[in-house]
């Protein structure tokens, strides 16, 4: 039962396909090897170090609001 926490991409190293993403204010390193066409500012779902898929901003913000409402995230 893994939570689908949206993470916003803040920095990308295209040579290594690695990126820095922000998950509830926490910076995490993620691999972009499993997704296409991701750019800085996009939201992705992250699982154990990999971006699983890109999601649109509206869906990401809706999901983050749900987690915040339940007290699962700080923001």
């Amino acid at each position: 039962m893994c939570l689908a926490l949206p993470a916003q991409i803040t920095d990308i190293d295209f040579t290594t396909q690695m990126a820095i993403a922000s998950v509830d204010g926490v910076k995490v390193e993620v691999s972009l090897a499993l997704v296409d066409d991701v750019k800085v500012g996009d939201y992705v779902l992250v699982h154990v170090g990999y971006a699983l898929n890109k999601i649109d901003e509206e869906e990401a913000l809706k999901t983050l609001a749900l987690f915040a409402e339940a007290g699962l995230t700080a923001s």
Partner: peptide, 14 residues
Amino acid sequence: SMVPLLFSLCGNAQ
């Protein structure tokens, strides 16, 4: 409508 947003793994089963 919320459950598919909550879970990244096993989303169909959830």
